[in-house]
Amino acid sequence: MMTEELCTRCGFVPAFDLPAPTRQVTGGFCGDLLSWAMGRAGEGSAWCTVMGSINAVAVASLADTAVLVLCHSAVLMDDAKQRALQQGINVVLTDLPEFEAAAAIAKQLGL
């Protein structure tokens, strides 16, 4: 499913105009430890986290996740937003906890 469609169905709010709205989402990952995410988040996954830092954006880029889902109303830092725009990283916001956000994603993906 495309990122934009998935996020609309789940009620996630884009942090800015999604730079890659048609990127296919193929799975999900939850976690806040960056090396853990780096090693285990699959390519094309929706990564649910509360880490809105520039380093989280770097990990999302390097791990090739489809979209960074900032849960629990976590804040996307200004420098992280700039880096995400530069690198074409999709970032969306939700007040849902990570578990519930992941459950919504899984339901939409039929997982």
Partner: peptide, 12 residues
């Protein structure tokens, strides 16, 4: 607190 230090750097 920045999300590093999980002890996965060298193993990764």
């Amino acid at each position: 607190s920045l999300g590093f230090g999980a002890g996965m750097g060298l193993p990764n």
